[in-house]
Design a protein around this nucleic acid. Structure first.
Lengths: 121, 121
DNA sequence: ATTGACCCTCACGTCAACGTGAAGCCCTAG
DNA sequence: CTAGGGCTTCACGTTGACGTGAGGGTCAAT
């Protein structure tokens, strides 16, 4: 599909999609006339990108993360051992992010559950 | 305490602390000579601010949130009911992000554990 | 073959959350 | 009393994630 349809279906602007490509988050094919040609799966990819960006992750980190989120149906291709330290650092970074978000959510949940049904505010 | 100590103890820059005050997130007293005078509780407050900022919330939202998060020593103080829908949306957004990250980490862990000890790469 | 919707690539503008001096006051130690 | 560390208020600079045209090619339909 072309960029307009992806924009409508994913709910993000065309500019943002071009920016994501520029940052290496998307790699659409090109038609002979130079139009970007996106896959169906990119709708999901963009959804993930949005979610992670909204969670405060940078495009650089997301770019490293996305290959780990490819749904190949049957796990991922076996990697190269020399990448292991890098992958482990990535995993630890993700863990740290999850912890941050969990802390924030715990705070929010606490506020939500202690808010009285009808208020004196 | 003064701004330098709070900066050291909370791990954020003095500039950031002044910015937080400017945005209404902190309201320190002032000494006769004009120095900011922070409370002990502000260390915790700043940690919360950092956590929520890292989770993608804006200072404006955090400013509305903080009064609902006064640590009364026994959980949080009752908040404002009209903020509830907003808070719940934020919480759901964070939950979605946590799910994304958890999925990514699971995949990544799979890659790590299935990487052969010595490599053909 | 012209219109109109769609697409392209620059390239400058914007906004939040700070960073980074500059110029100067406060306060304790030597 | 003066040197130095900490504090103050401007005020401009930076970075990331886009917004917003400008100027121009593409293409199906009239």
């Amino acid at each position: 599909m072309r960029i307009g349809e992806l924009a409508r279906r994913s709910g993000v602007s065309e500019r943002a999609l071009r920016y994501y490509e520029e940052q290496g988050l998307l790699s659409p094919n090109r038609t002979p006339s130079g139009y970007r040609d996106f896959e169906e799966s990119h709708v999901d990819t963009v959804r993930r990108i949005r979610s992670l960006l909204a969670a405060g992750l940078s495009t650089a980190i997301i770019a490293e993360l996305l290959p780990c989120m490819v749904d190949t149906g049957e796990g991922l291709a076996p990697g190269c051992p020399e990448l292991l330290p890098h992958l482990e650092r990535e995993r630890d970074r993700i863990t740290a992010s999850i912890d941050e978000l969990t802390t924030a959510r715990t705070l929010l949940t606490k506020v939500i559950t202690t808010t009285p049904p009808v208020g004196a505010c």
